[in-house]
Nucleic acid binder design. Structure first.
Lengths: 201, 201, 201, 201
DNA sequence: CATGAATGAGTTTTCATTCAT
DNA sequence: TATGAATGAAAACTCATTCAT
């Protein structure tokens, strides 16, 4: 049996939030490999053992962190998209909001673009599960575009989605690696223009 | 004394190659974090200590591995590109060869797309240095396309390059995560079509 | 990150004492180079990792050991000296107590006379810092003897101190190397007589 | 069977000398623990393997070094002592020459006073064997002094010898640790005066 | 609920020595 | 004699997790 497997973690509570915020801060500052549980606990103002009342294990902090942050991230984009009518606007909105949300939270950007990717394959798979929600959202936009006759019906939706996500993700990663020295969201129109052309008839 | 200060690693020799091939195999099979130096040595058929006659330390094996493999990878693509005349063909060739080379070497694909990314930031930076050669190659194609009047002169070359690389990279990573269950190079035309549209006037 | 930077070693506690006693015993029995941390931990009845809650690193065990033992060693001699009136008696007391304390603790004698001297220069310097307290004590006695007109005022105090310490130390080391086959403290009168003559007018 | 035990080392030859000189230099410069066989071989201008044609193992280099150097050291003192008539002069000569020879060879002084003492007990024992020749010489002087009625006949010769050697040794060690910042041989008269008083009737 | 002292498994790297040439 | 490439044993230290209080 894997350690801690049969522990029941509380999914809510003030400390739950504290610990997640502490994890983002500590990981962004110190890097994934120097972010010991004890450091996160200290930053969160709780004892080491308390972490394990709220999370099954260290990996669970990271997955939960990603779930919480990504959940809101997707929710916000979904909400905004609902209000837009044209497919072109929807695509621009998706790109802009993706870039905006990460530009608004440098620490989170470092964590999602660099640090969390240093995790092992198993954790990466669980992170990808969370990411699926976002990828579905992209699919929805692409499918709608095809349905509305704006995007090419010959598109391989899977490949198209990989292009959209791969492009935005690469743009963000480059921005993080360049230490946020320029405006990220300002790149949205340029990215949008290219992606729109790529997808259009 | 700084580690390895007075040791000179031999950059060539049969064992040098053996160790690198062993590293690719072991890492692809066991994952980065379960690939102890002793495992690599055993696979290479040399003693643990022999590793350190050829590499400064464990990280150096990984960087060297990437340098060796990526060096040839870029060289091959560069050579082929020189023979092509049309810009469309050049772009297709670049995509196809990128996909082909990784499809031809599943173990290497696993290592470059998943395992090497688990390394720490410092190693990642050294890997990025090596990658620059490939990114420059992409830039060359884009700039040539613009010059020849085929690609839009309004392109932000940096963003365009991030789209090209980000898309292909994402396509490969998805293929690896799906455990190579479909032909990767078969996706080249689809990817090419979209990227071409994205870049064109 | 510098080793041990953010770790705070507890300088007190029952386990702190246990570990130091275990270190003396293990080093005396097995020799410095065969006294692995794990062996000391086992002897102390704690886990390997526990050592590092109380000591920064292995070297720190040795320095602490010497500080603790030497601290008491010096204190005892200091206390006794205060009670003596004649300078001759003071010198005899210093010699006797030095010999007695080491004869009373064979393991400690082995560690201080032989094993700790195998340490590297850096550690030796830290040990010498601790030793300074004892050397100052010797100086005090010599200076008092001069002041009282019993010791020659032409004495070079530094050389005189080196003679006193060098002689006693050599006597103890020989006793340890001869595996404690004779009474050490019984040599005190003989040593005292010679040193007294050497220092006197 | 201990490694290398049944090898026959050549005790002479130009390279034998080269290696010993190289060892003194390397150990004095780098310290005992950073003086790898390969470093000594390089300094001596021979291959690593060649060392083992002249010495049984690394320890044997050190013992041989000590034997060679100490042998000459003792011989010189012995020769000079033979020429002196008075016991006082003999003692002064012994002290002066001891100090002089080490002052003349700083590297050797570092090696004998500090570095070689970091070796393990076994090696220390072999070194002590070599030292015996010197200790016997001291004994001879003391016994002669007693016989001539100058030194007290109540002297415990063993203790007296430990005082003479312990004092001189401590004086040298302090000089080495103070990085030879003062003249060592200049201390001879002061040391001589004290030792003479200590031994005399 | 919360604490934090204690646990102990796990891995890179060095370097004395060998031996085929 | 001489070489130097290859060997492989050996040990300090970290940190996620537990559990008695």
């Amino acid at each position: 049996m894997v350690k801690g497997e049969n522990r029941v973690a509380k999914r809510r509570g003030q400390k739950y939030e504290q610990i997640i915020e502490a994890a983002v801060k500590v990981i962004a500052q110190n890097g994934y490999h120097h972010s010991q549980v004890s450091k996160i606990a200290k930053e969160a103002g709780v004892a080491d053992g308390t972490i394990y009342l709220y999370f099954k294990n260290k990996e669970d902090i990271l997955v939960s962190l990603f779930q919480e942050k990504m959940g809101r991230f997707i929710q916000k984009i979904e909400d905004e998209l609902a209000g837009e009518t044209s497919i072109e606007e929807k695509l621009l909105l998706l790109i802009s909001m993706h870039l905006q949300q990460l530009e608004d939270n440098h620490a989170l950007a470092i964590v999602t673009q660099l640090e969390l990717r240093q995790s092992n394959i198993e954790l990466r798979n669980r992170i990808n599960e969370v990411l699926k929600g976002y990828l579905k959202l992209i699919d929805t936009v692409i499918l709608l575009g095809i349905k509305e006759g704006i995007f090419s019906e010959e598109l391989d939706v899977r490949i198209a989605r990989q292009m959209v996500f791969g492009t935005i993700d690469e743009v963000v990663t480059n921005w993080v690696m360049k230490e946020h020295r320029y405006s990220l969201v300002a790149l949205a129109p340029s990215v949008h223009k290219m992606l729109l052309k790529a997808l259009s008839k």
